[in-house]
């Protein structure tokens, strides 16, 4: 740039002016993202703590002391709510355990063993992502019905594990490849069998990837609606997300504030889980610095 040209950037402003504009745009875009992301959570939270009559009568923005209550949460003591929550927790834990175990073994196999069509196998795995749960759900309904898995938590665990698996296996594969083979060979030299070396040397080093895969599987299982709605048709075995919908349809008396209380109770565990695991999650996606 020559000296004679007027100073200026993208908008033809002076550099100072441009910096101010960009700072302002950054603030605005941040505000929009925060609003879109945080507003629904705030709205749910405030309604959950407001007396339901007040919610029905007018629009409230904040549970002021005169309308504040914890009474909405008594809805959680209803027996079917308890069942939904229990089922959701069982399915989430079952999915996490299945996903972690299978992805560790599959990832190790892809990273360390040679077999024909290995690369193609891994690519086909990703194709599983192209189908939405609703597309797989209907055929699964028929298959599960034939083999007696319909309406069982186990059947849902298998379905949910299957859709978490491509990501988890790829993550584990790439992560194990960053662990030097010499670590395992050193264990073999020390007398460890292949399985023992995998257990003592590979798995402990995979902890960040295991946590990342577990978090991913948890989020998927906890928030799943489609599979649960299709594969758990009976009310007594269903999970939380379809459970609420059914409760809304069946109950004569279920005010919005109660619904919000239930929603808040079910949103908190994943939020807390994600918050405390985030440092591990980041490590899981990082390529290890050696």
């Amino acid at each position: 740039m020559s000296q004679s040209e007027p100073p200026g950037g993208v908008f033809g402003l002076s550099y100072d002016g441009e910096t101010r504009v960009i700072e302002a745009l950054k603030l605005i875009s941040t505000a929009i993202i925060v609003l879109v992301g945080a507003w629904p959570i705030y709205w749910m939270t405030q309604l959950a703590f407001t007396e339901y009559e007040a919610v029905e009568d007018s629009v409230t923005a904040f549970p002021t002391p005169d309308i504040f209550t914890l009474g909405n949460f008594t809805v959680l003591t209803q027996p079917e709510m308890y069942t939904y929550m229990f089922n959701t927790v069982v399915v989430a834990i079952g999915t996490i355990v299945t996903v972690v175990l299978v992805s560790l073994l599959a990832g190790y196999g892809l990273a360390r063993l040679e077999f024909p069509q290995k690369e193609n196998f891994a690519r086909i795995l990703l194709v599983g992502y192209l189908f939405s749960p609703i597309v797989i759900g209907i055929p699964l309904y028929q298959i599960w019905q034939n083999i007696g898995l319909l309406g069982t938590r186990f059947g849902l665990i298998i379905a949910l594990s299957a859709i978490s698996m491509p990501f988890a296996v790829w993550l584990m594969w790439k992560y194990i490849m960053t662990i030097p083979e010499a670590h395992e060979e050193a264990a073999w030299v020390d007398g460890a069998s292949r399985w023992r070396g995998f257990r003592d040397v590979i798995i402990p080093q995979c902890r960040p990837a295991i946590i990342a895969a577990a978090l991913f599987a948890f989020a998927l299982a906890w928030n799943d609606f489609t599979f649960a709605q299709i594969l758990l048709p009976q009310t007594d075995t269903t999970t939380f997300a379809p459970g609420i919908l059914r409760a809304m349809g069946q109950a004569q008396f279920l005010p919005d504030a109660y619904l919000m209380a239930i929603s808040l109770a079910m949103t908190l565990p994943p939020l807390l889980f994600a918050y405390f695991m985030q440092s591990y999650l980041l490590k899981g996606f990082q390529v290890r610095a050696l």
């Binding site: 060979e185 007398g191 460890a192 040397v201």
Partner: peptide, 26 residues
């Protein structure tokens, strides 16, 4: 056998003591 590797290959998640004792443990 004993084998010393080019990239040393100590187990990064074990202390020095555990590293040295791993073969004996097995």
């Amino acid at each position: 056998i004993a084998l010393l590797f080019q990239d040393i290959a100590l187990y990064p998640h074990m202390s020095v003591l555990e590293n040295m004792a791993y073969g004996l443990k097995i």
